[in-house]
Design a protein around this nucleic acid. Structure first.
Lengths: 340, 340
DNA sequence: TGATTTTTGGTTGACGCACATCATTTACTA
DNA sequence: TAGTAAATGATGTGCGTCAACCAAAAATCA
């Protein structure tokens, strides 16, 4: 009933522990014959190496860096808080996490931050990527130096990043459209779209997905050119208020970036009855969902994303497999009734 | 820059490692004075104990049991597969997991299974509870013996279970209603409800939530008495087909339990155009979402739930804190566009 | 005051694996 | 057949914490 150790395997296979160790860690100097003997013994005894003991013996410390925007958006302040949380948890498991907050929407800032870190960046890094050649280059450089790179929340697909931790943003846009489509009951009208910036791939992709569905399935609805809110509630409020005042035909709105507070304020001020889908789950959007100003909120769980990034970076650095189902980041839909 | 160990703390505090260990694990035999000396040294050096080393030294093996129904439903076969998966992962971390599949919908079977296990049940157990005094009693008995108990998917609140791993089912029902409300565009009509069994608290609660919202916000829609499908696709198909044939006024349907395949078949056979919200994410529901037979599917992620149950049971047995945000099980809404 | 308990603290060896060194055996080449 | 290379064993140390077993000091009692 007791745990079977490498000792037991050695005995059963008729070899020494040294050899078992060689097989276990894929070290050279073992004949094919012995390898299979050891393997069969391991299977027979159902040996599984003790992770805790292995970690301890290896004595390795993992060092990961998060590069995230310092913006005011509710989402990224949640992300930053979750990274702090992950730092505390990680320290119990030999995982040192550092977070660098950089000015938002600036590719240069990202590159500078990484350059400034130098060796100090550790074994791997999670980057909230901004579409730009400079960022792509720095990612590829890091990969060349053997540092593991994952993109986080916003991706740069055609770069050397090993993985993207985040949702399928095109799908998020499609979901927004297919919800809004059912929420809007008028026979025709305009749909407003509020985004953060054209340099954020996640925003562009959501917009793309949204338009796909809208164009294909809602010929009666006209999607207006998007408003760039720069992720700032103030800017969003101002621009959207102006648009609502000018255009009485607006029947629906999709806000796909930060600054959702501005959306809420503009709509409340205009006393508009339009259907609204947004992102960001904050106290403001919660309240707006309950009062009915907003109909649905599409979000990604920052705590899940941060934990996922850490797990993936760890798996990458020690070459262990990744549990895909655990790392799938969901597009979460919140309506009034499933608020957490 | 190196990791600070208990040795370092001992040196800094001017005591031995043994004393540090005593303080760390709240053992007796240390003067108040020394305790505070050690504490201040720990803070000064920012000491965090190494989990891997602690687990190794303690040499404890965790043993948990899952009691789950053996039914044919897509959801529970997913659950069973995930438990197998968790078993494999757990074995690397000194966590032995066993699964007992019992005949569905039978409280006696649950109680018998637990009785048959005896001591073999281990340190903790996760039970898919069925509303019944016998189950409540056995849970309380286990707690009395110091065995940790969590309910899983379906809860029994007024028992000694330490925690419930699952979604807020009343909220799930409410969500179903508020979605269906928007999907149905007719000025009036009947709403059909398909459930599994009245002895499953999760089903009863969903129904409750559904009715709450329907009654309060949809006076134009009439919720029919529910159909008991016994979680069997065949039964569901038969009963629902009959209902659809009899009642041409049905405009919407909420299927809140297993046997969703039966729902799909009945609707397709009847060539009905009604709006449909179901549970269970299987190949059948996926396809039905894509073809438009189903409008939305509300699910809980079985892999998340299983991992959560294991983490919670482990935390309970060694009295460590629980990360609430990680253990919150979400009500996931799937529409055609965010299928994974 | 000496004997005895209680409190307090130190020593030391697991725990299971990783890794390195050195010795020895076996296989293969020249 | 010597000479070299490859395969394997023997052995030891370290990782950080835990816990059992002692030793010393302090407090209590006769």
């Amino acid at each position: 009933m007791n745990r079977v150790t490498a000792q037991d395997v050695a005995k059963a296979a008729g070899v020494s522990v040294a050899t078992v160790d060689r097989v276990l860690n894929h070290r050279k100097g073992v004949s094919q014959n012995t390898i299979s003997k050891v393997h069969s013994a391991m299977e027979r005894l159902e040996f599984v190496r003790d992770q805790a003991a292995a970690d301890l013996a290896r004595g390795k410390n993992y060092r990961f860096t998060f590069i995230v925007p310092a913006g005011e958006t509710a989402f990224f302040s949640d992300v930053r808080r979750e990274i702090e949380e992950a730092r505390a948890v990680g320290s119990k498991n030999r995982i040192d996490i550092q977070m660098i907050a950089v000015p938002p929407l600036s590719p240069e800032a990202v590159v500078e931050a990484i350059d400034a870190l130098g060796e100090d960046i550790g074994d791997g890094v999670a980057i909230v990527a901004i579409e730009s050649q400079a960022v792509r280059n720095v990612i590829n450089r890091l990969r060349g130096e053997g540092i593991h790179v994952v993109t986080f929340v916003s991706d740069i697909p055609n770069s050397g990043r090993e993985r993207f931790i985040g949702i399928d943003n095109v799908a998020a846009g499609r979901v927004a459209a297919s919800l809004l489509k059912r929420f809007v009951s008028t026979p025709s009208g305009d749909i407003a779209v509020v985004a953060g910036s054209g340099t954020l791939r996640d925003h562009v992709e959501r917009r793309m997905g949204f338009e796909q569905v809208m164009r294909a399935e809602c010929p009666h609805l006209n999607v207006l050119p998007w408003i760039e809110g720069e992720e700032l509630a103030g800017v969003v409020d101002e621009k959207l208020s102006m648009l609502l005042a000018q255009n009485p035909n607006i029947v629906g709105l999709y806000s796909l970036g930060g600054g959702t507070r501005g959306v809420i304020e503009a709509i409340e001020a205009a006393q508009s009855e339009i259907s609204v889908v947004t992102t960001e789950l904050s106290e403001h959007t919660r309240e707006a969902l309950i009062t009915g100003v907003i109909d649905a909120v599409l979000v990604q769980d920052p705590s899940h994303e941060v934990r996922s990034a850490v797990r993936v970076l760890k798996a990458l650095t020690d070459g262990s497999p990744i549990n895909e189902s655990q790392e799938r980041i969901r597009i979460e839909i919140f309506v009034r009734d499933n608020l957490p």
